[in-house]
Design a protein around this nucleic acid. Sequence first.
DNA 1: AGTGGGAATTTGTGATCACAATTTCGGATG
DNA 2: CATCCGAAATTGTGATCACAAATTCCCACT
Lengths: 221, 221
Amino acid sequence: MQKSVLRPSVAAETAPLSAHDRVYRGLRQQIMHGELPPGHALTLRGIGKSFGVSMTPARESVRRLSAEGALTLSASGRVTTPELSNERIEELASIRALLEPELGSRALRRAHLALIDRMDIINEANARAVNQQNPVEYIRTNLEFHRTLYLRAQSPAMLGLLETVWLQLGPTMRALYTRLRRTTAPPHHRLILEALRAGDDAALRLALRTDVTQGLRHLQA
Amino acid sequence: MQKSVLRPSVAAETAPLSAHDRVYRGLRQQIMHGELPPGHALTLRGIGKSFGVSMTPARESVRRLSAEGALTLSASGRVTTPELSNERIEELASIRALLEPELGSRALRRAHLALIDRMDIINEANARAVNQQNPVEYIRTNLEFHRTLYLRAQSPAMLGLLETVWLQLGPTMRALYTRLRRTTAPPHHRLILEALRAGDDAALRLALRTDVTQGLRHLQA
DNA sequence: AGTGGGAATTTGTGATCACAATTTCGGATG
DNA sequence: CATCCGAAATTGTGATCACAAATTCCCACT
């Protein structure tokens, strides 16, 4: 492993991006987007190798992610993606049901047409992912649909908490959506867009809440 | 620094407790209880020395805590406690106002008399801390009052998120309570206890919400 | 063929080191 | 007396290493 001898190329002038950051972001995305099933085992040396770094940044990333609930550390320090109990899944869903309507409501006042159009496009990509039965792409576009809206709420701390919840649900969502191989797009996205266009706060809150709870209630069945 | 040669003594049979855990917990408590003012600078070597460990566990703890918003990393990697903007403080307060009534409501069904008595005792300690003008003890007992209730909600994920918010507010709360040297105990704790005894869900939610928002609205004045 | 045990391997932990970047401090200069 | 520049000290980063604990694997034995 060479030191940080090679300067950041002219292209990446925005941020040198530390090794820890690259590993953290990479792992986080894999987990949130459902690229890893629940219970999937990881090793520090393996993570380091796959990102071309030593164990040190890998360990820091794992510690950070396990603090956020994105990874589980066994008593002996073994690293796996979490296998959530039904209770835990319901609790996380209820947190989503609490935070997401609030974020949506805050975004509503600031939402303009270009935003809604953008959400429409993302929603179409989401529908395509359903047809292709591509769980990772489905989860990714679904989260992007919601995040695009919530970014307008200008509430970074609340969005940060919500993303932590999404992160914890990543592997479980993958397991759910690959198991029941859904063939129809989430029906509530349409309601969300309609409420946005109408500027109807109550309808938006309701649509977001049902979208969240419905999506995860498929599990019990 | 010796290796981990000395076996855990017979007394501490519950958990050997890794170096990282000791440092993380220690720092976290200092921050959450307001032992550090906003903008306070820390160094990895200093943290390591004060806990009797090397830089490695100190770095992991700092990474973890900064991921939770309890510490700020400057562009050059310098570590300080956060100096929150008014906007951020208000946002965190509104998150508390969202989560705490929900946790209280969930706890209400399971709350028995022994719990309420315990909260009463903690509340008296809280009042003593006010009289002694001891900010750290005030913050500690205040949080313990709330946490004692919320633990009954049996919602570990939601409580975890809330503690993250408390953590971010730690240094700011210290600054607030040392600046305005409050001399009266929080008036809403009485209302919370009454609502608990009466089993009144709506009153409890309201009391919790006002306790949270009132406590932090003192800032603006 | 199944089982138990012990060696070999894998794995996480924490200390240490080299290094670059930042910060700090002192003195020379205007 | 203020300011700026350069040297010295401080500090975070990431790689490497020794070590202990856990896991895996394989073979002898029943």
